[in-house]
């Protein structure tokens, strides 16, 4: 197990290095940040001066090595846009907001998707099952920004139950949390359902019933844990996607998180910040995947990594 984790970590590191190269290259394809930094009427000299100041005059591979060298010291570089503020500081400022919203959305999707998925599996081919199917189809066909706008209009503008936007107490989280979580509820619920149906049909579930175990225990002890593997994979993925991909929802609800930060940084061609955020996203993705793999081994003893 330890060796497995080590090997996975090494693979993850390699992935991060490759990602850093790609991001580094892609960011520079978008254009020269000096154009955004300096006023339109800036002279050639001023531009050159700024480029030297930021190390932008050197060849790309040199720039990359400088970047990596700093990175190993934990220095993510300074922002262009927010004059000289370290990117790590900007991230530290925005990260809690994103983590908070993602965790809330994840909690909503898990709290709804798992129980409902189990319920519709147990009630297969009844009205409850069909209702669940409808909810799932609606969820998967509505993009989160559209759902976000609808929620905002109904519950914030018309009913005035929740604030329209911004970060604050729990009430601020409800609408963006639901908008983010609902899409995942749909997919997660369907996965849980099909996985449960498979397990409900197994011989060991039959044996549990023969033993005289109560139906509730059959479902939650004997089936659920076995049925969890498939949706858990997906759950890990959406955890990563939520942290990294809430760009749209954060924009719609003016939520001051990483998604909003990265949009601002891209618009300003703020390479260092974009690079730093994307690298963080990659890191998160890889970390969550490793965590999910470790969870597998915990849930299912047949899975032993060697």
């Amino acid at each position: 197990m330890q060796r497995y984790i080590l090997r996975r970590s090494a693979q993850g590191l390699l992935a991060i290095i490759v990602i850093s190269m790609v991001v580094f290259a892609l960011a520079r394809v978008t254009g020269d940040p000096t154009q955004v930094l300096l006023p339109d009427e800036a002279s050639e000299e001023q531009i050159l001066q700024t480029q030297i100041e930021w190390g932008l005059d050197k060849p790309l591979h040199i720039q990359y090595f400088v970047y990596i060298k700093r990175l190993t010291r934990g220095d993510l570089g300074n922002s262009f846009k927010w004059a000289g503020v370290p990117a790590s500081e900007l991230i530290a400022e925005r990260l809690p907001a994103t983590v908070q919203l993602s965790a809330f959305a994840l909690l909503i999707s898990a709290a709804i998707a798992f129980p409902v998925g189990v319920l519709v599996a147990v009630k297969k081919d009844t009205g409850i099952d069909y209702a669940g199917k409808m909810v799932a189809i609606l969820g998967q066909s509505a993009p989160s920004f559209a759902l976000g706008l609808i929620l905002m209009w109904v519950f914030a503008v018309q009913l005035d139950w929740f604030p329209t936007s911004g970060r604050g107490g729990l009430s601020h989280m409800v609408l963006p949390g639901v908008a983010l979580g609902y899409y995942n509820v749909a997919a997660l619920m369907r996965l849980t359902r099909s996985s449960m149906l498979e397990v409900l049909d197994t011989e060991y579930v039959k044996l549990a019933r023969i033993k005289g175990v109560s139906e509730r225990r059959v479902i939650w002890k004997h089936c659920f844990r076995n049925a969890l593997i498939v949706p858990l994979t997906y759950f890990g993925l959406i955890g990563a996607v939520l942290i990294t991909g809430s760009v749209v929802t954060e924009t719609v609800f003016a939520w001051p998180g990483l998604g909003a930060l990265v949009i601002e940084a891209i618009l300003a061609r703020d390479f260092t910040v974009v690079q730093a955020v994307v690298l963080l996203f990659a890191f998160t993705f890889i970390l969550i995947n490793i965590l999910v793999d470790i969870l597998y081994a915990y849930i299912d003893p047949r899975i032993r990594y060697s």
Binding site: E203, Y204, L207, I210, G212, R225, N226, I299, D300
Partner: peptide, 17 residues
């Protein structure tokens, strides 16, 4: 407690987890 049963395939009759 009164009636019990042994199933056909031992490979699948026990819960793997």
């Amino acid at each position: 407690q009164k009636i019990s049963m042994i199933l056909q395939d031992p490979q699948t009759s026990l819960n793997p987890v």
